[in-house]
Design a protein around this nucleic acid. Structure first.
Length: 315
DNA sequence: AATTCATTCAACCGCAGAGCG
DNA sequence: ACGCTCTGCGGTTGAATGAAT
């Protein structure tokens, strides 16, 4: 299929011999040494230059998910899990966006942790991990449970789409930023997804505001607007020493994290979630449902607080 | 001790979007 | 405008490991 779409590139000739599977220590060493010396970028040609018989994709993945400095491995803390759950309720399966709020964790790791632990925990609690609403047990109140769940999900998606649209309307000046705005929102958002959503919510609440939404947002969450372009610019430079660059990268996120009282985010997200549910097109939603969602949050967090990792109930 | 079953997570795959010639 | 390449993302797979029988 791919070969039909794309003629073989010079790199592809050698693809037959490309190594796959687990990385050896020697390969790790080669990749790390190369990136430390030359920086990364141009993943297509990197393997050959580094003396690796791997495809660029594989190298990139290995670097991003394993070799990159400051990767935090091991157990997720309670706070991290709370963050993931709440962000997931808001962002869905957008792991990279979620990972942007946990700078030391990779999207892959978060995704795995969600699928292997958090999702099961929510299910155990009777909460649908996709909608983050209480799983339906047949009750006269909820006549069509399945359709309600589906509606819930579609409502979330629609609300999200609306948030994006609205945020674009409210922040037209941002679309003309010199950096690739669309890519920033997609691939290196740092706290941007939440920012966008937040803007959308604010826009939804106030319909129109003459106040710069960025300042409105930053007053609460302090997103470093000046840093986006710089970060993106750095990523484009392949030659900057990676350790120095990664320091910068790390520090930038540290700043973000430290200037983001997690409680504020959570509070905001909880409200946002409730509001999001309420904004969802589900016409059957009423105040009680909103309250249920709020209680749902409470129960999730209480459950997490009372059941740290490793307790029997956490499976 | 041997076997089966379940879980975890690193790595791969396919796709979409953006840049570039 | 078009096609190719690169990059990044989310979903999925499968080997390794642990637990249960």
């Amino acid at each position: 299929m791919l070969s039909k779409m794309r003629p073989p590139s010079p790199n592809r000739k050698k693809e037959v011999r490309l190594k796959r599977g687990p990385w050896t220590a020697e390969e790790d060493k080669l990749l790390t040494a190369y990136i430390q010396k030359h920086g990364y970028g141009s993943w297509g040609s990197l393997p050959h230059k580094a003396g690796l018989e791997r495809c660029g994709k594989s190298c990139r993945l290995r670097w991003i998910n394993y070799l990159r400095p400051y990767i935090k491995r091991g157990k997720f803390s309670l706070e991290e899990e709370q963050t993931i759950i709440q962000l997931h309720a808001f962002l869905g399966n957008r792991w990279s966006a979620i990972a942007a709020h946990l700078p030391k964790r990779t999207d892959n790791e978060i995704k795995n942790h969600w699928n292997t632990h958090l999702k099961k925990r929510l299910i155990k609690m009777g909460i649908d991990p996709m909608t983050h609403k209480p799983s339906t047990s047949p009750s006269p109140k909820n006549g069509s449970n399945l359709s309600h769940m589906t509606q819930g999900e579609s409502a979330r998606l629609q609300a999200e789409a609306r948030l994006v649209r609205e945020s674009k309307q409210v922040v037209p000046n941002l679309t003309t930023r010199p950096t690739r705005w669309s890519q920033l929102t997609r691939s290196s958002p740092r706290c941007l997804d939440v920012l966008k959503a937040w803007q959308g919510i604010v826009a939804g609440m106030f319909v129109f505001s003459t106040q710069d939404p960025r300042s409105l947002t930053t007053s609460t969450l302090r997103f470093p607007s000046a840093g986006w372009g710089e970060a993106e610019e750095w990523r484009g430079q392949g030659k900057k020493g990676s350790s120095e660059a990664d320091d910068a990268w790390f520090e930038e996120d540290s700043v973000i994290l430290h200037s983001l009282p997690i409680a504020n985010i959570m509070e905001g997200l909880s409200d946002a979630f409730i509001l999001n549910s309420w904004m969802g097109v589900d016409k059957s939603t009423d105040e009680n449902t909103v309250m249920e969602n709020g209680n749902c949050w409470d129960s999730v967090l209480n459950f997490l607080n009372s059941s740290p990792c490793g307790s029997p109930v956490l499976g």
